[in-house]
Every structure is written in structure tokens, then in C-alpha cells.
């Protein structure tokens, strides 16, 4: 089974259980539809990173306080700000399906989430390749809202990426990303490769989450 299908099933709450044929068929159709509708775009910018004794993090001129982010960036010298979106088409697809058939709507929602992660991973590989030329290795993506990394940092991160203009990614007054299927993140870059980099889901403190990757 493809990774994207496995991830979709995880988002749909299947856990370790086998999925039924009908859902699998629907997932397949939805991915085909998303390939047409989604217009993935991404942007990244690299900044110098400084971490002070008292736990302050400086990404360029941006000062952040967050112990979870601090842990994630330990040993890093650069920070890549990253933004990605599947565009408004995906949102409309979900809105439309919500009126026609909620089963389809939840499957589109899960497939789009998986597709977005897959796209972010691909884009991160490209960034990793570039940074590798400078002898730097990337850490897993870390987004505003993870741990104690305040969601309000969405605003300066997006401003520094100028992502409304570059990829059409904006946010609401309550810091929700629009289009909905979008990501912003900080990616640390360190001169030393971490032996076993922990990806986003596993690194999370909420161990009883039913969507946790197992």
C-alpha cells in the first residue's frame, strides 16, 4: 500500500485496522481528483539562527520564546522558514462534497492532508539537498501551534516569507491558515546530522492521540 494511502487511513482513524474496499476505492478516486484540483506551491527562506542562554530564539530579526522549538533547533545554526499550500481548489472540493456526501468530504479532507504532507516532504528534500552543499543537515519541520510554539508566530513567519504574495497563503484573524490545506514551519539546519531525526507526529507530547503514527 502506498504511503499516502496509509497516511490517509491514519487520519481517518483506522489505526492498525484494515480498511474496507469501498473506502479504499474512494481514496483512490479522490487522489485522482486531487491531482487535478490541487495546485501545490511552496516558498522557503533561510535565516541565521541564534539561541541565547536564557532560551530566546532569534530567526533573523524574529525573536521567539518556545522551549519545544528550542529543543527542536538544538545545535542548529540556520533556520529555514517554510510555507506550503494546496491552494483554494481543494477547499472548494471539500465544501462541495460536504453538501453532496459527507463520506466523500471526510475522505477528501484526509487525502488532502496526506497529499500536503507528501508534498512538504518532497519540497523539504530539495531544501535539504541545497543545504547539504553547505554542509548543513535539516531537522524535522516544526510549525507554529506545536507544543508551546505559540500559534501567534504564524503572523511574523508568514510576513517574513511574504507568502500571501508568493504562494497565496494567508491567515485569518484567529491565525488559521487559508487555504485550509496549508502548512507553515520552521526547519532547523545543523552542521551535525542527527542520528535518528524524529518526525513531527512522533515528537509530539500528546501520547494518547488516536491519530498518532504507530
Amino acid at each position: 500500500m502506498e504511503r499516502r494511502t496509509r497516511e490517509t487511513l491514519r487520519y481517518l482513524g483506522y489505526g492498525k485496522n484494515a480498511a474496507d474496499e469501498k473506502t479504499l476505492a474512494l481514496i483512490k478516486d479522490v487522489f485522482a481528483e486531487l491531482e487535478q484540483t490541487a495546485a501545490p506551491k511552496s516558498i522557503c527562506r533561510v535565516f541565521d539562527l541564534e539561541q541565547t542562554e536564557d532560551g530566546g530564539i532569534f530567526i533573523g530579526n524574529l525573536k521567539i520564546r518556545s522551549s519545544s522549538l528550542s529543543r527542536n533547533l538544538k545545535g542548529c545554526v540556520k533556520a529555514v522558514l517554510f510555507g506550503a499550500t494546496l491552494g483554494t481548489g481543494t477547499d472548494r472540493l471539500i465544501a462541495r462534497a460536504s453538501l453532496k456526501d459527507m463520506a466523500e468530504a471526510v475522505v477528501i479532507q484526509a487525502c488532502a492532508a496526506a497529499l500536503l504532507e507528501e508534498y512538504c516532504d518532497q519540497e523539504q528534500m530539495k531544501i535539504a539537498e541545497n543545504m547539504g552543499k553547505q554542509g548543513l543537515y535539516l531537522r524535522p519541520r516544526f510549525s507554529p501551534g506545536y507544543g508551546d510554539f505559540d500559534i501567534a508566530y504564524q503572523e511574523p513567519v508568514m510576513r517574513m516569507l511574504d507568502c500571501a504574495k508568493t504562494i497565496g497563503l494567508t491567515m485569518t484573524d484567529s491565525f488559521m491558515l487559508t487555504p485550509m490545506k496549508s502548512v507553515t514551519a520552521v526547519i532547523g539546519a545543523a552542521p551535525v546530522k542527527e542520528p535518528c531525526p524524529v518526525a513531527g507526529c512522533e515528537a509530539c507530547g500528546k501520547k494518547d492521540c488516536e491519530y498518532r503514527r504507530r
Binding site: 481517518l12 480498511a19 469501498k22 473506502t23 474512494l26 456526501d101 463520506a103 475522505v107
Partner: peptide
């Protein structure tokens, strides 16, 4: 009980 999942629940609902 965890033998049927969200998409199936909703397909039945539809």
C-alpha cells in the same frame, strides 16, 4: 466498538 470507521459510518448515513 472500533470495527467500523468514519468513512463507512458516513456512507451508511448518506
Amino acid at each position: 466498538k472500533g470495527t467500523i470507521f468514519l468513512p463507512q459510518l458516513l456512507m451508511s448515513a448518506e
